[in-house]
Design a protein around this nucleic acid. Structure first.
Lengths: 191, 191
DNA sequence: GTCTATACACCGATAGAC
DNA sequence: GTCTATCGGTGTATAGAC
């Protein structure tokens, strides 16, 4: 059984996610991973022959995280406002530690140098996330819980983009503006 | 007189700005600039001995752009809503052409690998921009033109972060969501 | 100012022993 | 699965001729 291989692959993926969120895809190297794990670059290439392969695996890990989180949120018996807050807290938790941002924001920033394989995956992840939040807002508005003008997809864009932007902004300027801005963001949805 | 040197330096700076907005600071090289200008890498090093020097110059160019734009907006005899729209249009214009984003967003994404000299400049630019928008919103609200809850600085953060995020998002998914999201953003400010 | 030539570090990637 | 060794390419940067 290849549980050990799976563990190693998992280790590399987790470390890759961390580096993606801190340095960006083009700015971390196999060397970074190998020294952190105490093995050589060649060993990393055994598990992920090309960096592109690791990149695709990172997209898959993000997708797994999305699916797990979204399923959990949908199943819980709470208001849509609480569901939205759950999503926000989960993303903040995912970027916890120091100087991490949303992995999708990171990939977006490097899109010009990204391997071609990764673009469709990135697009699908973005759409999936935005669609989920739009559905949350639509449900909340239909039940009189939320009140905002315009289409839900545009309001969802404001929520998601502000959240991820605030995370990125906090990395430069500290977290003083993070929580109050997110509170403000949610207060804009209340009737 | 060194007008020719100044022109060359200006050319390099403009090209550097373009590359910053498309590829990011760590993902463009002196080679990119030299081939585009038809000179050698060594010539670029004559004008900007270290890439860090070019990076600082890029921050200065962004600052010049900010100061010029903000002065122009403040001097015009228009409503605060029109002033805000002027700022939004100016940033969209600055990222016009293909696959460009706000240069500050780009620098933020690369902050982990950025030369130490550039960080204070980046912080000052961010604060200057956010402060300007916050002042616009404060004036508009004092005059009954805008209506929104909470502090102006937090609302300004929502405006700026959504705008820049939408620009980045458009590069991946096309511009279909850009204009309606910005419309929605401004409609949230109306009483 | 711009050139040729080069130094040095790091990158992704591969071959082959163990 | 991990290692040593190495390759080719590219990055920033410098020396010195013109």
């Amino acid at each position: 059984m290849q549980t050990r291989a799976k563990d190693r692959k998992w280790q590399i993926t987790q470390l890759g996610l961390d580096l993606l969120q801190t340095r960006g895809y083009e700015n971390f190297s196999y060397q970074d991973i190998s020294t952190a794990l105490g093995i050589t670059k060649a060993s990393i290439h055994y598990h992920f022959p090309k960096k592109e392969d690791l990149g695709v695996a990172l997209c898959g890990a993000i997708q797994d995280w999305h699916e797990s989180l979204f399923r959990k949120i949908q199943q819980e018996n709470t208001s849509n406002a609480e569901k939205l807050n759950h999503y926000i807290r989960a993303l903040l938790e995912y970027a916890k530690g120091k100087n991490k941002i949303c992995p999708l924001s990171s990939l977006q920033a490097d899109v010009a140098s990204l391997p071609a394989n990764m673009l469709p995956a990135l697009q699908a992840l973005d759409r999936h996330e935005l669609g989920f939040i739009a559905q949350l807002l639509a449900n909340g508005r239909a039940q009189g819980e939320f009140s905002f003008p315009g289409e839900t997809s545009h309001q969802a864009a404001i929520v998601v983009l502000t959240l991820k932007g605030a995370l990125q902004y906090s990395r430069i300027h500290g977290s003083a503006l993070l929580e109050p801005t997110l509170d403000q963001l949610q207060s804009l949805l209340i009737a």
